[in-house]
Design a protein around this nucleic acid. Sequence first.
DNA 1: GATGAATGAGAATTCATTCAT
DNA 2: TATGAATGAATTCTCATTCAT
Lengths: 209, 209, 209, 209
Amino acid sequence: MNPEAGRPLKPPRPSTKREITKTQNRGLILDAARRVFAELGYAAATVRDIIGATGLASGTFYNYFKSKEEVFQAIRDAAALEVRPQLREARMKAETGEDFIASAFRTFFEFLARVRTGEAGGGNPSALPRMRIDTPEVVVGFTELREDIEAATARGILPATDAAYLAAAMIGVAFEMAEEMMTRSPPDIDGATAFATRVFMGGLPSSRA
Amino acid sequence: MNPEAGRPLKPPRPSTKREITKTQNRGLILDAARRVFAELGYAAATVRDIIGATGLASGTFYNYFKSKEEVFQAIRDAAALEVRPQLREARMKAETGEDFIASAFRTFFEFLARVRTGEAGGGNPSALPRMRIDTPEVVVGFTELREDIEAATARGILPATDAAYLAAAMIGVAFEMAEEMMTRSPPDIDGATAFATRVFMGGLPSSRA
Amino acid sequence: MNPEAGRPLKPPRPSTKREITKTQNRGLILDAARRVFAELGYAAATVRDIIGATGLASGTFYNYFKSKEEVFQAIRDAAALEVRPQLREARMKAETGEDFIASAFRTFFEFLARVRTGEAGGGNPSALPRMRIDTPEVVVGFTELREDIEAATARGILPATDAAYLAAAMIGVAFEMAEEMMTRSPPDIDGATAFATRVFMGGLPSSRA
Amino acid sequence: MNPEAGRPLKPPRPSTKREITKTQNRGLILDAARRVFAELGYAAATVRDIIGATGLASGTFYNYFKSKEEVFQAIRDAAALEVRPQLREARMKAETGEDFIASAFRTFFEFLARVRTGEAGGGNPSALPRMRIDTPEVVVGFTELREDIEAATARGILPATDAAYLAAAMIGVAFEMAEEMMTRSPPDIDGATAFATRVFMGGLPSSRA
DNA sequence: GATGAATGAGAATTCATTCAT
DNA sequence: TATGAATGAATTCTCATTCAT
C-alpha cells in the first residue's frame, strides 16, 4: 500500500534519563504520528510508518492505541482541545462582521502555522506537492472554522446569504491560502489574514488598496 | 517515462470487434478507477478495488496499466485534454474581470459536475473530510484554473494583487463550493457561479445585493 | 519469476516475402528459444520470453509446442541429429587414444562454437558470467561426448582406468575449456583441442612443450 | 549497499532465548534454501519453496532476507568464509606442483562433500544435467579454486602454460569429478583426489600407473 | 493457422496484530 | 510495560494457457 516514497522520518533517539520516563511513550507515538500523517496523509500512512518514526517496538504501539484510526482521533482531539479556547475568545470579542472574519481566519492560520512547521511534503505518487487535507490538525481546523462561521451567521454578525455556500467559500479560502501562506517564510499570517478578510469584506483586495 | 515515443500520434481507430472490446475494457477500467478514487481516495484505493469494480479478471488490469499510478495519470490526462480547450476559450473571451472570474468558475463547476456524476460517497473509516483532494479530475481542475488565473493577472484583466493568494483563494472557493454545489440536485451550477463571482467582485454577497 | 534482467532480445522483424512463408514459424520459435535459453538458461526462461523474442503472437507458440520443455527437447533433438554423424565419423577414424581424444574434443569444441556464437551472457542475478549449462545444445554435447568416451573405453582405445572418473574429467575439461575458448575471438578451437588433448595424454602441457 | 555500516563488527552473541530462536530461524531458512537450491537450482527455486521447506510463515522469511537473491548471497558468503582459510593454507604449504594440485583438489572435494550432504536429488522436469551449477557453494568453490590456481601459476610452482586454460581444465575436472565422487558412498575423496592429480601430473592415469 | 486480449492460479511482498520473553 | 519476532491475510503482479476473431 505504500510503495511510493522513501521514509526519511528519523526516530528521535531517546538518550537522556528524562526521556526514559516512559509513559510519555504515548506522547512519542502521537508526535511520530503527527509527522507521519503530515508527510504521507492519513490514508497512505501505515501503523508501521508510525512505529518506525517512533523508535519504539511495534508491540508498544498497541499498549497505547488499538489502531491507526485511534491515534488519528487522539491527535484530533488534542488539537481541538487546544484551539477551542482560542476560538471562543476570538468569537467573544468580535463585534462586527469584519472583526469576526478577521479573527476566524487569523486563528485558523495561526493554529496551522504552529502545528504544521517542519512538514516535509514530498513523496506523493501523484506528484501533488499539496498540503495534506487528511491530517488530524487540518480536520480540527476545518471543523472549528465551520462551526465558527455557522454560529456567526446564525447570530447575525454575518449577513444571511446562502450560509452553506458562505461557509464553503470561507473554508476554501482559508485552506488554500493556508497552504500558500506556509510556503512563505516566516509564515505570512498577517498578510494572509488581511487578504482573506478583505476578499470577504469587499471583493478583490486591490480594488480597494 | 514514455517508452513508446515513436508510435504514430493518432492511435489507429478501432475497427475489428476485438479492438472495440479492447477500447471498451480500457474505458471500463478507467471508469471503475474514477469511481473507486472518488470513493476511497487515491491513497486508500487498491488495484484490487479497481479490478473488483470492473468485473474483469485481475490479470486484465495489467494488460492496460502497469500500476495504480498509471491509471491515475491516464485519468488525469484525459481530463486535462477535456478541460483545457474550454478554459482557454473562456480565458480568451473574457474582457472584464467579472467576466473572467464568472466564466472560470462556471467552467470549473460544469466540468466537475459532468465528471463527478455517479460518485458513491460514504464508507470512510474515520471522520475525514468527505471531499477527496487526490482525485485525478480535481488535480487537473486545480492546475488549469491556477494557470488561468495567473495568465489573467498577467494580462491586466485582474487587478495586480498578490497573485498567488488570489489564485489560492479562488481555487479554495471553487473547490469547496463545488462540493456543496454537488449536494444539491440538480447541481446548482448557476447559483454557485453567481455566488462565487460576487464574493470576488464585491465581498460578501448580501452586503451588496 | 524473472525480475532480474532486462530482456534485450529483439524480435527479428519479418519483412521480406520469403520470411512470410510461415511454417518456418516453427524455426522462428526454435531460434528465439535458442537465444533465450542461452541468455537466461532453461530454468529462468519463460514462455513469454521466447514468444517475445519471436515477434509472433502468444497463441502461435502453442500451435507448435505445448510447453517450454517441448521446445527444449526439440532443440536438443535437432542438435543431436546434427552432431551425431560428425562424432561417429571421428570415432571411426580414430586409431590411437590420442587420435580419439583429440577428435572428441575437437568435435565438441567445433559444435559449440558453431552453435553458440552471439551469446549474450549477462543478466544473471547471482552475477555468474558463466556459460549456461542448461541449454539444449550443451546437454547434447554432454551426452554425446560421454557416450563417445564410454564407447572408446569399452573398445580399449582408451586405457581402462576408472571409466566414470575419466568420463567426468574429460567432460569437465571440455565444458570449462569451451567457455574459456569462447571468450577468445575467434574461438580458439585448435588451441583448446591441443591443450585438452595434451593434458590427457601427458599431464600438464608445458611439462612437455 | 550496506546501510548499517556503523554497527559494531562483532554481532552481539545471542544470549536471550529470543535471540537464540532468531539465530536458529535464520539458520533454518539458510538450510532450507540450500536444500531447495540444490534440488531445483537457483533459477527455478521460488521464495515460496524455501518458505515451505522451512515450516515458517511466509512473512517470517522477509524478517531475515529481502529476496531470494539475498539468501543466495548469504549462503555464498558463509561458504566463502569457510573455504577461504582452508584454501589459503593448502596454497601456502604446497612446495611442488604435485603437492599444490593434490591439495587443491582435496580441499575442494572435501569442502563439497561436507557442504553437499543432505541433498535431495530428483524432481527435474526435463532431462537436464543433474548437476546444478548455480548453487551458492559451487560458485564459491569455483571462485576460490580459480584464484588459487592463478596464484600458484604466478609463483612458478605450476609451469607457465596457458593459465586460463589450465584453470578451466582443473575446475572442470574438479567439478565434474566431484559429482561422480558424490555418487559413491562414502564419498570417495581419496580416490578422486588421486585420479585428478595424476591426470594433471602425467596424463591418463593408467598409461603410467 | 495467426492473433492477442482475457483469464485466474500462483508467486512475491507488505502489513496489522499477537504473544512469548 | 516494553520488546520484536512470528504470523498469515491481503495485496501486487506475473505467467502459462485459452479462445473468440
